[in-house]
Design a protein around this nucleic acid. Sequence first.
RNA 1: GCUCAUAUAGCUCAGUCGGUAGAGCACUUGCUUGGUAAGUAAGAGGUCACCGGUUCAAGUCCGGUUAUGAGCUCCA
Length: 642
Amino acid sequence: MNITLPDGSTRELSEGSSGYDLALSIGKGLAKAAVAISIDGKQQDIHDSITQDSSVSIITIDSSEGLEIMRHTLTAQVLARAVKNLYPDAKLAIGPTINDGFYYDFLFNKAISSDDIPKIENEMRNIIKSGDPINKSFRSQKEAVKLFKDRKEDYKIEIIQDSDQKEDFQIYQQGDSDFIDLCKGPHLPNLSLIGSFKLTKIAGAYWRGDSKNEMLTRIYGTAWNTEKELNTYLEAIEEAEKRDHRKLAKEMDLFHFQEEAPGMVFWHPNGWTIYRELKSYIRDRLMKSNYQEINTPQVVDRKLWEASGHWDKYRENMFIAEIDEEHANEKRVNALKPMNCPCHVQIYNQGIKSYRDLPLRYAEFGSCHRYEASGTMHGLMRVRGFTQDDGHIFCTESQIEKETALFIELLSGIYKDLGFDNFSIKLSTRPEIRVGSDEVWDKAEESLKNAINKLDLPYTIDEGDGAFYGPKLDFVLTDAIGREWQCGTFQADFNLPDRLDAEYIGEDGSKHRPVMIHRAILGSFERFIGVLIENYSGRLPLWMAPCQVVISSIVSDVDSYVDEVEELLSNKGIRVLTDKRNEKISYKVREHSTAKVPVIMVIGKKEAEERTISVRRLGSDKNTSYDLDKIIDEISLESQRP
RNA sequence: GCUCAUAUAGCUCAGUCGGUAGAGCACUUGCUUGGUAAGUAAGAGGUCACCGGUUCAAGUCCGGUUAUGAGCUCCA
């Protein structure tokens, strides 16, 4: 039997040799580090026999595949066995690996909580100490069902019975322990290869991810080959927690939420300054890109929502406003708008539009309300009241490509200005249930693709993930610590113009339907500000910072010079505060650093005499002396919106 | 919406066995005028989320409601 190795070399092995035999034939060291093999691209246990000529690679514990197998063994073998030891009545569901770790779902008779984590971790360590070998046997469907019936493992039985497979169900067992589990494998050959791990949290999860099913208890964990890697990971998590925009918002006094208006933001002066700056910036960019800003009502009669289709499809997410019966002259049912598009069509529909008017680009800072399920709200990232940087482009099918290109250009410039150099694009194509003819879909998908290709941008395709009304592009940006945020979107819509009867007169003198493109760059201001805060760890660029400069005095003798500098900066439009309190300078520097003020100016006797300023930038412990005029000009230039 | 957890001073948190509330920071006032991340002393500040129950007595125990957190589901 001929085995081809990844480097192209071949090796002759006797029929039925295992992966371990292969590794041993190459070297003892390799055999020791080998945890599994990949036969023609399929991962298998190291002791599985190789049955025919094939290309085989040996997976070692220090590879990324090896790490994943280790995590898999840790959850499906060690965590599951530990839980069964401690809670014999618990039922096993599934235990896959995820990014950086793993989880396992169980059904417990009596709820467990995070207080139980140490106990489970201890039991896991005890199991690992045994260093038990992991063995595998094969069972038919019937045998496998019986095996798990005896153990009352209902979920395993369901998995086996739902499987197309009839034979060769893999049952794993450790040494001579009583624990067995059904698993696709592969697993480590023995428990001594397990590295460092930690159980991180406990949460609920639906069986098979379906909210109609019962809620199981999911135990999450992370695992690494070495203690050091584990600690690096845990530190990175802590670092991310420090950036949490909800925490920073308290420290920086940006906004708050309260019980009377869940999911609605109370913006404080500092937070609202960020919001205003961002909005002015976006408005400026839209005007330069030939958008026309409009504004439409917040509260609209249900008739319009019925016509647009929202009443049918989106009603459970809408805030309905009925007028108090006692005071109303007429009965009306209104809804707070969850989206701006139907209102934009109303403006489009005023007067007669010619093909010469297209493309027509409407923009609105549209204040929307959506009744989000209570459990989904999360700081600014998911709210019930928010403002979109929304816009709708009415154009012909043949204009889609050009509009796509213009949009991507606008978006990438804006992301760059806001500190995000990297973003990726997802193209979602026609779903099974859709409106519009195939020819129109062909044309629209082609237009989007062509536009991205011409700009030479990479993108991925989500086949069948488009909206029912048209294909779309989604834009996902990557923040400073590598997290991804889907913000921008560009969606062609062949449906709404039809439902709301939008039309234009073509060159041929007859009426046509325009295509409507829904587009946003930030998505929502609220969420995007959340992303900005976390991306910058609260240290916003000068132009967005709520307070840009604090002038701190060292002695009260210089107060008049402090006031003079304040006026100069203020006249230049700089957001400046003075700190003339009777406190030591280190106290003031600490306080303003904590508050993330980008520029701290310090003035003592020396500066007042020389008409200079000592400047300390946030994040630096250096201070530099400048002539008064020079620093005023510099700060004024630097604080301009891009 | 679901599961589990949490809710005490402006913030971060302690509060034992049920016996009428505590710290640090912030705030106010006094002293201190100082050179780049916490000078010093004193004072003020709470209907312990809300509603109900058990009890002689509830921040503490029990039930409910609301909000928040983690995850799941959802986000045409």
